[in-house]
Design a protein around this nucleic acid. Structure first.
Lengths: 208, 208
DNA sequence: GTCTATATTACGATAGAC
DNA sequence: GTCTATCGTAATATAGAC
């Protein structure tokens, strides 16, 4: 019935009486994704969190800090995929498929954070830093695709640069519509992961 | 050397001394795409156009009118594709391929307008109206995909709902990176269109 | 058609009480 | 940890001269 109760009702996470930077971030990221970062005022955040504007500043130093924390969380999840054994061993085409599969899963597990990351434009230092880190990730995946071509596992007519962009486009577009079903422990829908992988690799992989 | 000259230099369209709503829109849409609509102030627009803030209001009634004109132009282009003969005759799978091809081409011809449309969030009436019109387009294409499945032209393992989303994701992602080459008459790159079509339909079409 | 000047409101952030 | 009150700035838009 209280404003705080209203917040908890929406997220089924009512144990906490007060906010931490982390729990406040969860609320903020949701609002950022609904309204866009620039379209969200501290007043919007305060209403969504059920506390006053000035109380938000007790937990974080600025609106931009919320953005930085959010995109960091997304980028850390994506970067970790490239350090997993499946991304480092075997033929490049198989590593690429592994990375596609795991990237899609990370996108689902950290959906609001990755969604926000994908919409960053570059207006502030924080946003430009996020874009640079994201480009780094993209380039490491593009390198995998180039190597797969060199190893002769790609269809010969595939333009590698173009294919990399379409692959990312397809994976990232999942953030536009994917919503986890019910209250599962793991929000990853394997059927969606399989659809992404099979759709993308039907056009890439050379079957010999 | 003047501010007006600076504008013209960027767009190779220097015949006009003053702005019309249309030419002002071209400038505005560019800035909207760089900074995001909410991240763009009338001050930003005035600097980009080389005229004062208040002069902008001589041509358009508000910032939101610029947005409405822009997304309208994008939506009109997309909607027209569905009325073309190639989208209305033949097997559904072929009509779907035609629509994919033509939608990608429209995206390239009206790139900044479609880019802006794809980023609209729904904060204002104008934005919600644009989202509704866009959903209408999406649903008509999704219906084509359903019909292609009913006609037995899709791979049996394809989830139609999912496939529609991945198809749109791939097409729309072209707006994220595509930049026309040089100063051609027609900014459509057929190689990119072919790559989109062949990548998407390799995972969709059943070859019998 | 463009300008300067300004009205009015909304924004991010801080001060200081409880 | 949260609040009310407020500061300073930047936002959209208008008034009226040229």
């Amino acid at each position: 019935m209280t404003a705080r109760g209203d917040r908890s009702a929406g997220t089924a996470r009512a144990q906490r009486d007060t906010y931490t930077p982390q729990t406040l971030l969860e609320v903020a990221v949701e609002v950022f994704n609904e309204r866009g970062y620039d379209g969200t005022s501290m007043e919007h955040l305060s209403r969504a969190a059920g506390i006053s504007k000035s109380s938000i500043y007790h937990h974080v130093r600025s609106k931009e800090e919320l953005l930085r924390r959010a995109v960091s969380h997304a980028l850390d999840g994506l970067a970790a995929v490239l350090d997993e054994p499946g991304a480092r061993q075997g033929r490049a085409i198989d590593r690429l498929e592994y990375v596609t599969r795991r990237t899609t899963a990370v996108l689902m597990r950290r959906l609001p954070y990755v969604t926000l990351l994908l919409r960053v434009r570059g207006n502030t230092d924080t946003e430009r830093w996020a874009l640079a880190r994201r480009r780094e990730f993209d380039q490491r995946v593009a390198a995998l695709l180039r190597q797969a071509a060199a190893e002769g596992d790609l269809r010969p007519e595939v333009d590698v640069r173009l294919a990399a962009r379409l692959l990312f486009g397809m994976i990232n577009s999942v953030a536009e519509w994917y919503r986890p079903q019910g209250e599962q422990d793991d929000p990853v829908d394997e059927a969606v992961v399989e659809a992404v992988v099979s759709t993308a690799f039907a056009g890439l992989r050379l079957h010999r």
